[in-house]
Design a protein around this nucleic acid. Structure first.
Lengths: 202, 202
DNA sequence: TGTACATCAGTGAACGCGCGTTCACTGATGTAC
DNA sequence: TGTACATCAGTGAACGCGCGTTCACTGATGTAC
């Protein structure tokens, strides 16, 4: 990817996108600063003008992952305003679908950032936003009796665990073929959510 | 770790254990064949007498991880024979506790084996055994009305997702401090399982 | 029991590789006057 | 509008490192007779 101008113009974002593409193609093991720079059409030292080190780039890629997840969840909430159980289902599906579509990006989002709190506040902020969205969905479900009453942040962790676990197990190849042959991941998600809800959801 | 004899005697297992220790100390990134060999008190080429390549050692470490999980689950089942909901809780806790005690070993168990089916049948066998144990617990719970009726392998995936997800989120630092300050992970697990069960469990 | 010999499980040197990071540099851009 | 200059965002050579893997080798062990 050669450039025309000496200056790139938007290298920081280009590096993040390049990193995401490399993750999609070769997984976490394939992600090196040098390859990312090459993919962005820039010399291997150029990234240091925008990221202090490799960890900082990984943190940016993780933050972007969380941003996309958050975006998808909010889209689901907006689309099914007034229908909490549908919001729950579609937000959950958005999450699982992201994981299955871009497995390495999903994985690095949840395991790539080591020193969360101090070092990478943008990542923490994005993760809190997402969790906040889950809490609001859960509260709406509780208000309608779709989910049992109880502390909403705790219930949100339960729901999130269920959804995150299903996504993880499927993408790690842990769900048996006999099950995958019988039904889609979305159907498994619907079944699983129904194990938790007091009222059947579609 | 020097030896007295020229031959090690049980190097294959020693390498697996050494790998597990390195994982515990320095995580997945710290796991190299050379360090594992060094830790086992052997030259860096010695592992090749027992493993065809690094992947094979990782597969063995993963298989051992699954073996430990299975062992713990079966122990919980045996200890609370005749009390399905307690079996469910304690097996789930055994799982989460293993994840929190040995995070890197847990992680590599679920993401380290790439070519599962063909290449590493021992791993697949161990994972199927564990899933079988979960299915039996779920069936016992269904028989007593603790869990809703339904295909037991599907319900097992739901339960497993919930437990696996909770373990993953906690060890990746995704559960908020405000929640972790208020209660233990075991209490979160109990709460979460109770979201799924028809009858409260302890 | 003793000996010859095949097999096995280690050793240590060597290979090539890609990596993260640093550094002196240079081309491009923006700003003050 | 033109020019001097500071700042910025890249370049490319160089560094040292640890890695996975191969290979000719050797010390130890087991077995047949």
């Amino acid at each position: 990817m050669p450039r025309k101008t000496y200056h790139h113009g938007d290298l920081k974002n280009a590096l993040i996108q390049a990193g995401i593409h490399i993750l999609a193609k070769d997984g976490v093991a394939g992600l090196s600063l040098r390859r990312v720079a090459g993919k962005a059409g820039v010399s291997h030292a150029a990234p240091y003008a925008h990221f202090t080190d490799k960890q900082a780039l990984i943190a940016a890629i993780s933050t972007e992952g969380y941003r996309r997840i958050h975006e998808r969840i909010e889209a689901a909430v907006a689309e099914f305003e007034g229908d909490p159980s549908r919001q729950l289902l579609e937000a959950a599906w958005a999450y699982v679908d992201f994981a299955l579509t871009d497995p390495a990006h999903f994985k690095i989002t949840f395991s790539g950032v080591i020193e969360k709190e101090k070092e990478h506040p943008a990542f923490v902020e994005m993760s809190q936003k997402s969790f906040g969205a889950v809490i609001r969905i859960v509260e709406a479900c509780q208000a309608q009796g779709v989910l049992a009453a109880g502390p909403s942040d705790l219930a949100a962790v339960s729901v999130w665990s269920l959804v995150h676990g299903l996504a993880s197990l499927v993408l790690e190849g842990q769900v048996s073929h006999s099950l995958l042959d019988r039904m889609s991941v979305r159907e498994m998600l619907v079944f699983s959510l129904n194990q938790m809800t007091k009222v059947p959801i579609p």
